[in-house]
Amino acid sequence: MPSTREMRLRIRSVKNIAQVTRALEAVSASKVRRATQAVTATKPYAEKAWKVLVHLARQPGHNALHPLLKERDEVKRVLVLMVSGDRGLAGAYNVNILRYTLDAFKDFKQPVSFVVVGRKGRDLLLRRRLNVVAEFSDLPSPPSFLDVSQVGRLLVDDFLRGEYDQVYLCYTNFVTMLRQEPVIQKLLPLEVEFVADGKHDKMGTHRTHSVFTYEPDQNEILNQIVPRFTALQVYQAILSSQASEHAARMVAMRNATDSALDLIDSLQLDYNKARQQAITNDILDISGGAEALAQSGA
């Protein structure tokens, strides 16, 4: 049994911890909000750019497909962009995305290289001796589009140079405060038609019958749009991951605060008991002494 003094110190230190975790929880909560707002703000551009892409890809006589849209006959090397966090203390966030990514690519016969966003992800991948070719960390939260456009540019450039034949994007999709899902998405070559027939169709497709004039030409327009659309997808993935990271951290911190409060309660109870025990002992001593005196005096 520790002394009452030690117990008092312990209670005080746990109280301090609870204060810190509560503050971290509040910070994360506001960051989640900012990141989700930033995701929403990118939607109009994404939808409009998508419509233009679908439209261009559906043009008849468009047999010379743009290199960024064209599936390569032979896939020799694969590049994966994994989005993780810079810091820990976010529950299972970093481990989840890592495990999901490794699971998905463990059966690939081609060599897989990684580009990673976030220091934690980099460390985890390096510890497994995987090939990390580039790392982006210390991004602001939320980042501006300019902050992350270089990530997209790197992927597009490497793909066009033929260093990689497929590029995938692994990030954590923010569903709700309590649920975040790891997701894998094929980034390049961009599969316009395939996605168009699936979930994105309600975004609305073009009136394809109208005859468009192209200035300067279709390929030049694709040159403009596809890299930007890719960069935007990366941007959205990073924002969504950040929202997830902060949400995971918020929940982890809330749990920590709750546990700390429970611990304080039980420590306080122990302390009170010990204190009461000491008082009782003292009273017993005194009353025993008084009784002995009274007997000897009689």
Binding site: H55, T213, E220
Partner: peptide, 18 residues
């Protein structure tokens, strides 16, 4: 536009331009 400044009035024919 890519081919110079262009004014767009209602009922313009469809154009995609950089």
């Amino acid at each position: 536009g890519a081919g110079g400044v262009m004014g767009v009035l209602p009922n313009h024919s469809p154009v995609l331009t950089t």
